[in-house]
Design a protein around this nucleic acid. Structure first.
Lengths: 205, 205
DNA sequence: TTCATTCTAGAATATGCATTCTAGAATGAA
DNA sequence: TTCATTCTAGAATGCATATTCTAGAATGAA
């Protein structure tokens, strides 16, 4: 090759994740990212075509680890274990968890949309997670998938556990033992699929 | 008084809420707020000393309606009804719900902190909500309040129902009937207080 | 060696936007 | 009427920051 690079894409991505985790998307300016890495601002543009591109790459890398932690358990038909797997995943890298779970993607990309290949990768990852959820409830249910059942599963396995973790992510404090208990209790008390057990008690119209 | 004003604080607050609801905090620039109202940008500064001040005023106004909807039920020891009250509250004004529930306050105030009186009002409102939660679990429990019990209550009554509503707020679609059922089922399956009695919570007795 | 390539380094540019400023108009009180 | 006050109206200012540009250095191939 030619001249050896001092700053890699990984360096910039890690810096962006750390800065967003610490101070929100607005804190991750190009100058801040460069300063965090010790590089001149211009060097970032040898790796990423825009600020959106860094965020998209960071998001993809982070979300990919999340899919890696949850999807196998979902595909194996183990929703409770998938929900509980969020805990070690979030403990493993707090910056990554804060980056991914504490900010709506819209606030990362409101200036400009990410470049096309990265956007497609985002869609691919989200679609993969969606497929895993569908596979999971197809196992426990009767095969047909209603939107309601998918929404239930996503809530019980993903959104609710995250809501349990969020206060501690926001505070930057360690997860107390009861967060795992709450997730377990949630899954003990509320069935993933309404069909299959005698749990239908709530009715409106 | 003197010259009659054409543009009121309410106009600017409503515009800010609508713009944040539609495009996130970054979309609510001072020029955008002014344009939305039909006022010159300078006129905003006769009502608010800064952009943070508009956001803080909008947040306080919105959160106040939320406290008004939930606190009485919490103080009356009706956690399940409080959780269900989020549904009509969010349906009543979608922009307000999106403004308040879809964005971390940190992203509203990352440029500058809100002016002191507004910041104090924010604290007062949040503290009021906190007190209502404490009062609620003090009723159902044995009087002593552990942090764990408070976290459970906030999750079951507030964060979990919001997590159920969020996908539909994000999509801008109407709430399907099953969201209310999911909230009810959650409260039927998971008790607010681990100590105390069996699962039955509200004044059904 | 020479050269194209791919970097570092950091200055320069351009743009968007919060905030301030200037000018003048409406209003009620004295 | 005159005047202080509180607005409208919108231009001007200044700053932060994303992006581009200039200059030069390292590297491997020819």
């Amino acid at each position: 090759m030619v001249r050896t690079a001092r700053f890699s894409t990984e360096h910039f991505i890690d810096a962006a994740i750390a800065l967003v985790a610490a101070g929100g998307p607005g804190a991750a300016t190009m100058q801040a990212v460069a300063r965090h890495v010790g590089a001149p601002t211009g060097s970032i543009y040898h790796r990423f075509e825009s600020r959106s591109a860094i965020f998209a790459a960071a998001w993809n890398q982070s979300y990919d680890t999340l899919v890696g932690a949850l999807a196998p358990l979902l595909l194996a038909g183990r929703p409770r274990e998938a929900a509980l797997a969020l805990l070690p995943w979030a403990s493993e890298d707090r910056d990554r968890a804060r980056f991914l779970l504490l900010h709506e993607p819209v606030s990362l990309f409101e200036d400009a949309p990410p470049p096309e290949p990265l956007r497609q990768e985002m869609e691919r990852l989200e679609s993969g997670m969606d497929q895993a959820f569908r596979a999971c409830i197809a196992r426990t249910g009767d095969g047909a998938i209603r939107e309601e059942d998918l929404a239930r599963a996503k809530f019980l396995i993903f959104d609710a556990p995250i809501a349990i973790l969020r206060p501690h992510l926001l505070a930057g404090s360690a997860f107390p033992p009861f967060v795992g208990q709450m997730i377990a209790e949630l899954h003990a008390g509320v069935p993933i699929a309404r069909t299959g057990r005698g749990a239908d008690d709530t009715q409106a119209a």
